[in-house]
Amino acid sequence: MTEAKEQSKLLVKDHDVVVPGEVLAEGMEYLPSQGTYRKDDRIYANQTGLLIVEGKVLKTIPLAGVYLPKRHDVIIGKVIDILMTGWRLDTNSPYSAVLPLKDATFDYIKKGADLTSFFDLDEYVVCKIFQVTSQNLVDVSMKGPGLRKLKGGRILKVNAAKVPRIIGKRGSMVSMIKQATSCQLTVGQNGLVWLNGEPEQELLAVESIRKIEVEAHVPGLTDRMKQWLEKKTGKKIEMKPDEEFPEDRRPRHDGPRGPRRDGPRGPRRDGPRGPRRDGPRGPRRTGPRR
């Protein structure tokens, strides 16, 4: 065992871009996680991504790839079909979602009512995924804060793997773009972004989102974007979390695990959201879910 420890060595640096089949570490001391695997005494990457070294654990943050529906994600969907009891939405992923009548609105819908008067074909809605099956059948709901039909504005398609960068820590990046451009902005986890504002400002917002997409893997993104936006607009931009993101939606993906360092807290999750994993009802958690 001691011998194995002596021989263990990391062959790449933290925050390197790694590609499938690349040897990341030799020896038994390092552990494979998301986007990496062990074969004999070596750890290989199996996805193009940014390598993150967390102590002895090696994992990657993907840099590309389509969106896969995940429970509790807030996404932007497009109505593609009207069903007997709801709507079918395109989720910008290989799988479409169903919005059932009962989860669509608080209004009373009469039997046989014309469903297009609520959501018509080609309209966009902000909705939340509340169920994903093993075959990736998706159910969404529109009951919740911020979930609504989108009117006006424009829709932007971005690389779904870069969405966490566009949102930033606790929505800081979104908040910066909002301040700089005074646009309304909603980012769906599925890689669709909705923008609404003055035409020139919208263009600036589009440009900044494209810039984030290209530079997402280069360190110092937030500061760079802040400077860039300040230069473009001449406004002083203050860095603050966005009110739509009271806490990081997916804290598991950022920063080291382990005890939180920012002091004592109340109950870990507040409100009626309930525990994240509640037994076998949720999606199967094996496989490369992001």
Binding site: V19, P20, Y44, N46, Q47, T48, A64, G65, V66
Partner: peptide, 11 residues
């Protein structure tokens, strides 16, 4: 395929 971000053991 690797550029598309698919999971693959190797190239």
């Amino acid at each position: 395929l690797a550029d598309a971000g698919l999971r693959m053991r190797d190239v």
